[in-house]
Design a protein around this nucleic acid. Structure first.
Lengths: 194, 194, 194, 194
DNA sequence: AATGAATGAGTGTTCATTCAT
DNA sequence: GATGAATGAACACTCATTCAT
């Protein structure tokens, strides 16, 4: 058998796709190694365990997304523009790599608790945007996390429906409408919560 | 309906709680049997396999919820009232049995594909309510599933945030505001999608 | 394959013989299971791990031997008689079950540190006999453990030589001479240590 | 990467210490390489396998000890003097390098059978001294190996007790008493075996 | 000649499922 | 019928050894 080289990169893509398709527990290390074209042993040079492999992939993607959302928020001032930018980013992320997106959706249930307090997550990025809008008087008093749940829920559930074929086509095409719906919903939530 | 009496009931409750806490793959049959106070062998008298146990619990809860939402829709006429009723029902469901709710959230990723086409799911109940509203001219033309994603996303992500402690208190208290946000968001989505 | 019954007993003898022949690390669980005629899985119903299996077997044999030596010491009064009884017991033990003896010799290096302080080991039984003799004035002042090393060394090394074929025949036949040598050596050590 | 120099010596010391602490099977080649500051690959330039490394270290130390004991025996004539010299040598060896001593104690169980017949081992050196004494009429007729077991047992078990902390201080300080005990024990064994 | 990534056979362990009692 | 011991096919992981660089 020819000797494989550069296991690390090949493993990541294979692992994310398999995890997304079958869940972390549903994928055997042997499958990942086979899909990546490396030996099982080689995998362990780069990741100390399957659990750690999943965690590394999840936290990297999750925190990177958080940082990207922070960057997008910094480019705009108004709440509507900020939400619009973030929604577009999410949709583009989904369109570009649906497997990664699905992996994050699946993996969060087991791995979110391992995210250390103080890390910049997507939730924090969105919540901070809402909090800023409240401070600026753009919307009424509201718990930023309650509003974040609304924004993320609209986005994530649309992505879930796309995965199951309930909605089709690129999410990017839906981004403007989703952003508008999210912004409106947050304002409505703030009004109704008062 | 939930007859929490006898071996079968004890197994169901134990299984749902363990599945919700650790995922289906993360729970051993031995654990369920021990938690339910029955032998492993006895478990197989009622369910032919672990997969089938999980499937039975999931589909029963999922389809029952669909039927309940259908019933709520039938009690109201206006879109706003129907959404309000359904949101209240969801919130009450979560407050009453968070483990069951979390189990459904977790299990859907693996089990939703097994739901036969034509079954009345929560998704269908909500989508039909939206479709009726479109037919009645209450809101503009819109893909009912896209709207359903918005409604369910707002609800489910709020529940997820409650699970992780990002929002606290009973969801029932938040139901009116969530219903208002969902109704508004659907209208906004319809307007923006036109 | 016919279903095996009563794994526990069959496993013990097989494990001790294999451990004695190849060392604990040198024996695979599969070998033990095969030699015992049970499945690998059955083994784990009785012992939580290979390490624990070895430990259970070792500590049981080691502590039982300690108790037996205590019993023998109680049957005699004079140091010579006590040493004679204990040496005979050791030799009979070796003759009856050389594999168990060899297992104890091998396993002590890794497992002795796990013996909790305060347990009655063979070392303690012998050391107490020496200490009593010192108190009675039968021999001169001496560190009981230093004397115990002499007694045990004479015995154990003879057993080792028997294992390697350097000495042959039953050890029981050598017991009186070994006991005499041990008693004399202890007295000499006490005299020389003064 | 810094290129390792004098690899061989560093590997030997590291290997002996690790083997002594954890047993041959309990030490990974990677550990030895790391402790010695060389690469795993470099290790295989000097030793064809881990087994061979352990064997080389054991046989070298074991046969060297045999030769040293032969030399000591040649310096003396009387049995007592010879035993005294050999015991002192053993004790000094232990005091100087307890890890090497412990390694030999551990490794003998697996490696002694590989020592070719006719090699001069410590056992042979001592047995020859006893045989000469018998020939000279210094002690009664006795199997030289039985006597060697007594001498070595007294020594080795004392060393084992030192390893486990049952006896403390330098063994050299105990050498005269141990030599006296060993000489006396051999004479007693010869008398009792007659 | 030295490095360390890659290999792959083997290990201990788990667990859904079966079945004798 | 109920029990829980037994099964056996995975599985995650280790590690002595090889070899491209």
């Amino acid at each position: 058998m020819p000797r494989a080289v550069g296991a690390r990169g090949k493993v990541e893509q294979a692992a994310i796709e398999l995890f997304a398709a079958k869940g972390i527990d549903g994928v055997a290390i042997a499958e990942i190694a086979a899909a990546a074209g490396v030996s099982q042993g080689a995998l362990y040079r780069h990741y100390p365990s399957k659990e750690e492999l999943a965690w590394t992939l999840f936290s990297a993607a999750y925190l990177r997304t958080g940082a990207e959302l922070d960057g997008i928020a910094a480019e705009h001032v108004a709440l509507g523009a900020r939400i619009d930018g973030m929604v577009r980013h999410f949709c583009a992320l989904y369109d570009r790599d649906p497997a990664l997106f699905r992996f994050m959706l699946l993996a969060q249930h087991g791995l979110l608790p391992r995210i250390a307090a103080g890390q910049r997550t997507p939730v924090d990025a969105i919540a901070d945007v809402v909090a800023a809008a409240v401070r600026q008087g753009e919307i009424g008093q509201i718990d930023p996390f309650a509003a974040t749940a609304v924004i993320m829920g609209i986005l994530l559930q649309t992505a879930v429906f796309h995965i199951y074929g309930r909605v089709t086509g690129s999410l990017a095409a839906r981004a403007p409408a989703l952003a508008h719906a999210a912004t409106t919903a947050v304002a409505a939530l703030a009004a109704a919560s008062a």
